[in-house]
């Protein structure tokens, strides 16, 4: 019977071979693809806070001191604290960014204002940040 097929259809063997090769390579590719797909499934991401970047662009000594105090607070105190701030960015980051943008006097006043608003009493005033429960309130 096999002989009849080969005589009748001389290209059938070649076709069969090509199909077999193509299918097997397809399956192999899928397995490799799966390995690649799941290789980073349990990847752990490091969250390194680079607060030292705030030292840059300090226009005067007062700003430099306030930045130093901020970095000390973030590294020594805030790193040991739970997530209590209701805002994103947190009140300390908001204050330092306000100081950088608006100057030491207005920035500090804005920071104090932010601290006084750091509660969940008026959720209607702020949108939520991404998928978290934090209120989004950046420095304007």
């Amino acid at each position: 019977m096999m002989n009849t097929i080969i005589i009748k259809y001389p290209n059938s063997l070649l076709l069969f071979f090509i199909l077999s090769v193509s299918f097997s390579s397809n399956i192999y590719a899928q397995t490799s693809e799966d390995l690649r797909l799941f290789s980073d499934l349990y990847q752990v991401h490091e969250h390194k806070n680079n607060f030292a970047r705030y030292f840059k662009n300090s226009s005067n000594e007062l700003e430099l001191i306030s930045t130093g105090l901020f970095v000390f607070y973030k590294d020594f105190f805030s790193s040991q604290d739970g997530n209590h701030c209701v805002f994103y960015p947190s009140c300390s980051i908001y204050t330092i960014e306000a100081i950088k943008k608006q100057g030491i006097v207005i920035g500090l006043m804005n920071g104090i204002d932010r601290l006084s608003r750091c509660n969940k009493l008026s959720p209607e005033n702020y949108p939520l940040y991404k998928n978290s429960n934090l209120f989004y309130d950046p420095v304007e």
Binding site: S24, I27, Y28, Q30, T31, D34, L35, F38
Partner: peptide
């Protein structure tokens, strides 16, 4: 190949 994929 199929079983390997399934096991994986």
């Amino acid at each position: 190949q199929y079983n390997n994929r399934k096991n994986f």
